[in-house]
Computed example of a mutant assay.
Amino acid sequence: MAPKQQRGEATVDLLLDTALRVYAESGRQGFTVNAVTAASGVSFGSLYHHFGSFDGLAAALYIRCMDRLCDPVVAAVTRSRTARTGIRALVRAYLDFTRDHRDVALFLHASVQSRYLAAHAQEVMAAKEAKFAPIAAWLHPRVVAGELAPLPAHFIEILVMGPVAETAQRWLSTAYEVDLDEAARVLPDRIWRSLRPD
């Protein structure tokens, strides 16, 4: 790799790392282009050169955080042999990741409805679909084999991810008291029951 390209990649990494830190320390209100450039020491021009806009930086950070979440979740599911163990592994992996990587989880959950992702919605959706494709591929033959209720894929996603995401979001919020360890004990089987064939 050429030195110029290495410097460019290092600047991108620095900006993304700094943006996550700024968000974790200052929240949505403090997540600004001025705060990120000041904390990173990177110029406005360089940020815009690499990301096109501050919204582009935020979208890239969202995709990077989603990758970090998806990798252990996909690994947990795809190494499972049965539908039951796979669903339970997904729930636990998601909750474990939330606990172990609070800053990443906070940015993901708080950014879902944010204005800065709107301009990059198609890019974000394509990245999300690509990352979750191995789970869909793992689930499909189990639905066909009758291990899971014969539901459309989006209903399966809602039944699994809805309770898990809501639990994570409540744990991340200071407004609720949620015991993530208790959720990791209770939810995997409860969610699995909602997906068992009748």
Results as ranks from 00 to 15, higher is better:
20 L>P: 05
183 A>K: 02
128 K>S: 15
179 D>W: 04
40 S>M: 05
197 P>F: 04
83 A>E: 07
65 C>L: 04
63 I>L: 05
17 D>E: 13
86 G>N: 06
115 R>T: 13
94 Y>A: 14
173 S>G: 14
120 H>F: 01
31 F>E: 06
73 V>Q: 02
38 A>V: 08
104 V>Y: 00
125 M>G: 11
23 Y>C: 05
159 L>I: 09
44 F>P: 03
19 A>D: 05
197 P>R: 03
52 G>C: 07
40 S>C: 08
122 Q>W: 03
7 R>F: 05
186 V>I: 13
64 R>C: 07
3 P>Y: 02
148 L>M: 15
165 A>Y: 11
70 C>T: 11
1 M>H: 06
76 A>C: 11
74 V>C: 04
51 F>I: 07
190 R>V: 14
137 A>D: 15
42 V>I: 09
115 R>N: 10
88 R>Q: 15
4 K>I: 11
126 A>C: 05
185 R>H: 11
87 I>P: 06
77 V>H: 02
56 G>R: 00
71 D>N: 09
166 E>Y: 09
22 V>L: 01
121 A>I: 08
172 L>K: 02
44 F>L: 11
155 F>K: 10
21 R>N: 06
31 F>A: 07
74 V>L: 05
48 Y>M: 05
175 A>H: 12
61 L>A: 02
19 A>V: 08
105 A>F: 03
122 Q>R: 07
133 A>F: 07
39 A>T: 08
198 D>S: 15
44 F>M: 09
127 A>Q: 06
166 E>S: 15
135 I>R: 00
84 R>D: 14
12 V>Y: 00
198 D>V: 13
147 E>D: 15
25 E>I: 07
132 F>K: 05
79 R>N: 10
88 R>V: 09
106 L>I: 03
43 S>N: 07
170 R>V: 06
152 P>L: 09
97 F>N: 04
134 P>Y: 05
50 H>I: 09
67 D>Y: 03
101 H>A: 13
28 R>V: 10
63 I>M: 08
155 F>Y: 10
55 D>M: 01
141 P>H: 07
74 V>Q: 02
137 A>Q: 15
11 T>I: 11
125 M>E: 15
94 Y>M: 13
158 I>G: 12
53 S>R: 00
178 V>N: 02
182 E>C: 12
62 Y>L: 02
175 A>L: 14
45 G>H: 02
106 L>Q: 08
31 F>K: 00
